[in-house]
């Protein structure tokens, strides 16, 4: 009788790798030093598969699939860096730039921004789409933090960390499509929120300069994300 093995062997970009069946392609790639871009994924929070930057090709599959959400299968042949994928990824980044206001030169997160890093790493040299010049509300009402929705990439990290780790669920997403915005409570000023504990977790996980500390000068805002893995492990252990 054949025992189903929990260890899978597969190929990523022509390289033979083995992995536990619970692992995602993204995790396996990272263990093997293969770079796949990500934005919505952050270790320690649930997966939502929203940004689509981690799309990969699998031989024999018609669809592109998100690496963060796809598990290893025996004999799978994965490609992470084809021309098609590079094109799509660049296009996603360009669309994010065109949809929001991302003028790095005046941003407190300049130099510490995941969107800026991805743009450089994926070789975005210009944006092919016209900028939509959004005029979205900036919320300065919190005593320590600022929310600038013009820089938000809707990754929902703030929503997840506040719900899953802090347990406050101050954030959520209002509307849909191009009208989607992050909101606090019933779309009230953040400073008036009754649920926010001012813990600062959302500030630290926000990949861009959309949620930052007050009083920072250009390029001065650095974020720490290491707390997240630690906290989520501790929460898990208590269950």
């Amino acid at each position: 009788m054949a025992v189903r093995s929990r260890i899978k062997t597969l190929k990523i970009d022509g390289r033979d790798v083995s992995a536990h069946e619970d692992e995602t392609i993204l995790q396996i790639a990272e263990e093997n030093g293969i770079f796949i871009p990500t934005l919505c994924r952050i270790e320690g929070l649930s997966l939502i598969g929203a940004c689509r930057l981690c799309l990969i090709e699998v031989k024999g599959w018609n669809r592109l699939v998100p690496a963060c959400h796809t598990h290893a299968e025996e004999g799978m042949e994965v490609f992470t860096d084809t021309e098609r994928l590079r094109n799509y990824r660049r296009m996603i980044i360009e669309l994010l730039f065109s949809e929001g206001n991302h003028v790095c030169a005046v941003c407190v997160s300049n130099g510490n921004c995941e969107l800026q890093y991805l743009a450089q790493r994926l070789g975005m040299d210009h944006v092919r789409f016209p900028n939509m010049q959004p005029v979205r509300k900036v919320d300065m009402t919190h005593e320590r933090f600022v929310l600038d929705r013009n820089r938000c990439v809707l990754c929902a990290r703030c929503i997840r960390v506040c719900d899953e780790i802090e347990g406050a669920h101050t954030w959520d997403m209002r509307g849909r499509g191009i009208d989607a915005r992050v909101i606090t409570d019933l779309d009230i000023p953040w400073g008036d929120s009754e649920t926010c504990t001012s813990c600062g977790k959302c500030v630290n996980v926000c990949p861009v300069g959309a949620i930052v500390e007050k009083g920072r000068a250009v390029g001065e805002m650095t974020k720490r994300k290491d707390f997240l893995v630690y906290l989520s492990k501790m929460r898990e252990a208590k269950k």
């Binding site: 959520d172 849909r176 909101i183 779309d187 649920t195």
Partner: peptide, 10 residues
């Protein structure tokens, strides 16, 4: 959470 109710309603 209030924000979640608002999210669904919008």
């Amino acid at each position: 959470a209030p924000s979640q109710v608002y999210g669904v309603a919008t």
